[in-house]
Simulated assay, not measured.
Amino acid sequence: MTAMLNIKDLRSYYGQVQALHGLSFALNEGSLTTLLGANGAGKTTTLRAICNMVRSTGAIEFDGSSLMGRSTESIVRLGIAHVPQGRGTFTSLTVEENLQLGAISRRDRAGIIADIERMYGYFPVLKERYTQQAGTLSGGEQQMLAVARALMLKPRLMLLDEPSFGLAPLIVRDLFKILGRINREEKVTILVVEQNAQLALELADQAHVIETGRIVMSGGAKEIANNEDVRKSYLGY
C-alpha cells in the first residue's frame, strides 16, 4: 500500500496547554485505522490537527503536499472529510437538504443525484426520512446522516470522531458494518477515533494507542487486540 497521510512529530496546543507531544504515524491508501485511548488522551485533537482546527507544529502531508497552514476549507477540497463528535448535522434542514449541502462544492448535478441515491442504498432509513428535519431524527439516524453527508464530498480520506457515541449497541454494529463496506467498496481511507475499542479493532486493519498525547503502541489491529495491556485497559478482560 502507498502512504496517503504522513504525520511526523505532531505537537498541538490549546492556548499554552500542549495536547499532543510528537505524534508520528502514516495512513496507507485504502486502509482503515483506529486511534484508541482514554478520554483526554489526544485522539480528537489529532483529527482536529489534520484539519488545521488547532494550533500545531510538525508535519502533516496528504499525498505528498503539506496541510500545515492551509485553511480547513482548502483541506476539505483536497478530499478529506471530517465527521466530528456530536454528528454536526444541520438540524433545521431536511435529510435531503443535508445531503445536498454535503455536495455544495460540486457542479456535477447528475452525479450528485446519483450519489444521494447511493447514500440511500447504504442507509435505507434516510430515504424513508428524506423530507424530515434532521433535528427530529434519532441519534443513530443523525450519525448515519453525518456519515452520508461527508461521503457526498466524494472524499479520499474520512476522519470519524466517536461515531458510536450515545448509540445503542445494535445500531453501532450496523453503522460499523456500513463503514467497512464504504472502505472496501468506495476505497475510502478511514481514520476512526473510537471508545468502543473491541468493535473498532474488529473493523480496522491498523491501530494506534494514544496516552497523554503520545503514541505508545502501534501495529495491526489483530496484534493490538491480542496485546495483554490493551485487553486489560480497553477491552476489559
Results as ranks from 00 to 15, higher is better:
Lys8Ser: 15
Asp9Met: 09
Asp9Cys: 05
Arg11Ser: 13
Val17Asp: 12
Val17Arg: 14
Leu20His: 04
His21Cys: 01
Phe25Cys: 00
Ala26Trp: 04
Asn28Trp: 05
Glu29Thr: 13
Glu29Gln: 15
Glu29Cys: 04
Gly40Met: 06
Gly42Phe: 05
Gly42Pro: 03
Lys43Gln: 10
Lys43Met: 09
Lys43Ser: 10
Thr45Asp: 02
Thr46Pro: 07
Leu47Gly: 12
Ile50Thr: 10
Glu61Ile: 00
Gly64Asp: 07
Ser66Ile: 03
Ser66Thr: 14
Met68Val: 11
Gly69Asp: 06
Ser71Thr: 12
Glu73Ser: 14
Arg77Leu: 06
His82Gln: 12
Pro84Val: 03
Thr89Glu: 13
Thr89Leu: 10
Val95Gly: 13
Glu96Asn: 11
Leu101Asp: 02
Gly102Pro: 08
Ala110Ile: 00
Asp115Val: 00
Met119Gly: 09
Met119Val: 03
Phe123Gln: 08
Phe123Leu: 04
Val125Met: 13
Glu128Pro: 00
Arg129His: 13
Thr136Ser: 15
Thr136Ala: 14
Thr136Asn: 14
Ser138Glu: 10
Gly139His: 12
Gly140Ser: 10
Met144Gln: 14
Leu145Met: 08
Arg149Gln: 09
Ala150Phe: 10
Leu151Val: 01
Leu153Glu: 08
Leu159Ser: 06
Leu160Arg: 06
Ser164Arg: 11
Gly166Met: 07
Leu170Phe: 03
Arg173Thr: 10
Ile182Met: 07
Arg184Cys: 02
Thr189Val: 01
Ile190Trp: 09
Val193Glu: 12
Gln195Gly: 06
Asn196Gly: 07
Ala197Ser: 05
Ala197Phe: 01
Ala197Pro: 01
Leu201Tyr: 06
Glu202Lys: 14
Glu202Cys: 04
Leu203Cys: 03
Gln206Trp: 11
Gln206Ile: 00
Ile210Ala: 05
Ile210Gly: 09
Val216Asn: 07
Met217Asn: 03
Ser218Trp: 02
Gly219Ser: 09
Glu223Ile: 01
Asn227Asp: 15
Glu228Val: 05
Lys232Leu: 09
Tyr237Asp: 12
Tyr237His: 15
